[in-house]
Amino acid sequence: MPRFRHLLTMTLGAALLQSPLLHAEELPAAIRKIEEKGAKIIGSFDAPDGLRGYAAQYQNRGMALYLTPDGKHVLLGNLYDANGKDLSAEPLQKLVYAPMAKEVWAKMESSAWIADGSKDAPRVVYLFSDPNCQYCTLFWEQARPWVKSGKVQLRHIMVGIIREDSPGKSAALLASKDPSKALDDHEKAGKQSALKALPTIPQEVQDKLNANMALMEELELPATPAIFYLDAKGDLQQQQGAPSPDKLAKILGPK
Rank of each mutant, 00 (worst) to 15 (best):
P91D: 13
M1P: 11
L236V: 05
K208N: 01
V152L: 05
D49H: 14
L51S: 07
V205A: 02
A106D: 04
G43T: 15
Q206F: 00
L76K: 09
F128R: 02
P199W: 02
F139V: 10
A64M: 04
A39Q: 10
A112M: 07
A226L: 00
R52Y: 09
W146C: 10
G241D: 04
E217M: 12
R3H: 15
L92F: 07
Q238Y: 07
P122H: 04
E187M: 10
K102Y: 06
L230F: 09
I42V: 15
A64W: 03
T137S: 05
A98L: 02
M216D: 00
E109Q: 14
E25G: 12
D86T: 07
L65C: 08
Q237G: 02
L65R: 08
S244D: 05
L79N: 01
K233P: 00
L92W: 01
E109W: 02
G168I: 08
A115D: 00
S193T: 03
H6P: 01
L27V: 11
P243D: 03
M63T: 14
L21E: 14
Q203K: 01
D116S: 12
L230R: 12
A106V: 02
P122C: 00
R144C: 07
Q238C: 11
D49Y: 15
A115F: 03
Q134Y: 13
T200N: 13
H23I: 08
E109K: 05
V152R: 01
D184G: 00
D130N: 05
P2H: 15
K255P: 15
E187D: 14
E204A: 00
I42G: 06
I42F: 08
Q192M: 03
K196R: 12
H156W: 07
E36Q: 15
F4L: 13
D116A: 12
L22Y: 07
D81S: 09
L215W: 01
A143D: 03
D165F: 03
L219A: 06
T9H: 13
P245K: 13
A24M: 11
Q57M: 13
P202A: 05
Y135D: 08
K181A: 14
I41C: 11
L79D: 02
P243S: 07
T9S: 12
M10N: 14
L27N: 08
Q238H: 07
A242T: 10
P225N: 04
K40V: 15
K208H: 06
G38L: 10
A242N: 07
K181H: 10
V124Q: 11
M63S: 12
K148H: 12
Q203T: 06
V147T: 11
D178R: 05
